[in-house]
């Protein structure tokens, strides 16, 4: 039986592994807030530098963090482009006419095909996406011969557009890096326990953080089991001729349903049996329980909290001044 890796946690040693999950959650939260309070590009750049320095101090594999950035790369590129195009404040930096002719169209089609092909045969998806976006700009700007399709239009980039787009991208980069560090160095179970303890005060308004944490930890425990189950069902269906990889979208959907229905039924049976097992071991929801896992704070946690607090205070001070 192969085990499925849940979350991004990688076992290791180093500063961030030794911190209490509560400290890490609080620190990440405070730092994120301060990142939003910084208003000048220099401040943000320094913050990015400090974040990188922290990664090095914590002996965190930078490549891992960059991999963590991948899923939001498209988002980053889009925010960048939209900020540049739509922000019309400050001085004009560039201004010129854009053309859209038959040849432009031809060039665009070629660029599109090139991009799709390169994505298929190489690994650098985002690099080529970026190149594709740049080539759209270049064609619109310089290819001005041939039959005009759309009348030439004016295109301008403003100062604020550039600063804001860099701003947004750096902010997002720092935030994602922070949260990646949190998930890389904290076991899912520790994370839930940290959340549970932090949300404990919410009991006054009727939020049962203990049950919440138990639900999360049981879900985490059953993910590999349910994966196994799905594999078995898929093999059972495949042995009777079902094909999950080919066919039209409609066929695929139908096949997914044939996978989901038995999985739901099995999950219900499972939860019934699990409830029985838990009850027979004297579990009563909402009753006080002792814990085998204990969270302990050390001087490191104090330091980390102090550090993030001072960053927050600094950001507030800078904003007020």
């Amino acid at each position: 039986m192969k085990s499925v890796i849940i979350g991004q946690y990688i076992p290791g040693k180093g500063l961030f592994y030794k911190l209490d999950p509560r400290t890490k959650i609080i620190a990440v939260f405070l730092l994120m807030v301060s990142v939003f309070l910084f208003e000048r590009i220099e401040q943000l750049l320094i913050a990015l530098g400090v974040a990188t320095l922290l990664l090095l101090v914590g002996k965190i594999n930078i490549i891992r963090v960059i991999k963590g950035l991948k899923p939001i790369m498209i988002l980053l590129i889009f925010t960048f482009i939209f900020q540049i195009m739509l922000n019309k404040q400050g001085q004009k930096v560039v201004e010129h006419d854009m053309y859209f002719t038959l040849f432009t169209l031809l060039f665009l089609v070629i660029a599109f095909i090139l991009w799709r092909v390169m994505v298929k045969i190489t690994k650098f998806r985002f690099t080529f996406f970026f190149l594709f976006v740049i080539s759209i700009y270049l064609t619109l700007r310089y290819v001005d011969y041939g039959q005009t399709i759309i009348q030439p239009f004016n295109f301008a980039i403003y100062e604020d557009g550039i600063t804001m787009s860099i701003f947004v991208v750096i902010r997002l980069l720092i935030i994602i890096t922070l949260s990646t560090v949190l998930t890389l160095t904290t076991k899912p179970t520790d994370l839930t326990q940290g959340l549970e303890k932090l949300m404990h005060p919410l009991k006054k308004i009727g939020f049962d953080s203990e049950s919440f944490a138990l639900i999360i930890s049981i879900s985490l425990r059953y993910i590999p089991t349910i994966f196994d189950e799905a594999n078995k069902i898929m093999m059972a269906q495949a042995s009777r001729g079902a094909d999950f990889s080919e066919g039209k979208l409609k066929d695929k959907l139908r096949q997914v349903i044939s996978l989901l229905v038995p999985m739901f039924i099995i999950a219900f049976i499972r939860s019934e049996e699990l409830a029985n097992a838990m009850e027979s071991r004297n579990f009563v929801p909402g009753e006080p329980r002792t814990r085998i896992h204990e969270l302990t704070m050390s001087y490191r946690d104090t330091l980390a909290t102090l550090f993030s607090f001072s960053v927050l205070i600094l950001s507030i001070v800078l904003k007020v001044i």
């Binding site: 179970t189 930890s217 049981i218 985490l220 425990r221 699990l274 097992a277 838990m278 071991r281 004297n282 579990f283 009563v284 009753e287 329980r289 002792t290 814990r291 085998i292 896992h293």
Partner: peptide, 15 residues
Amino acid sequence: VGVTVKDDIAFGMEN
């Protein structure tokens, strides 16, 4: 119930 063997043995005692 537990995420690890240790947690599972502990579950009843925790209750």
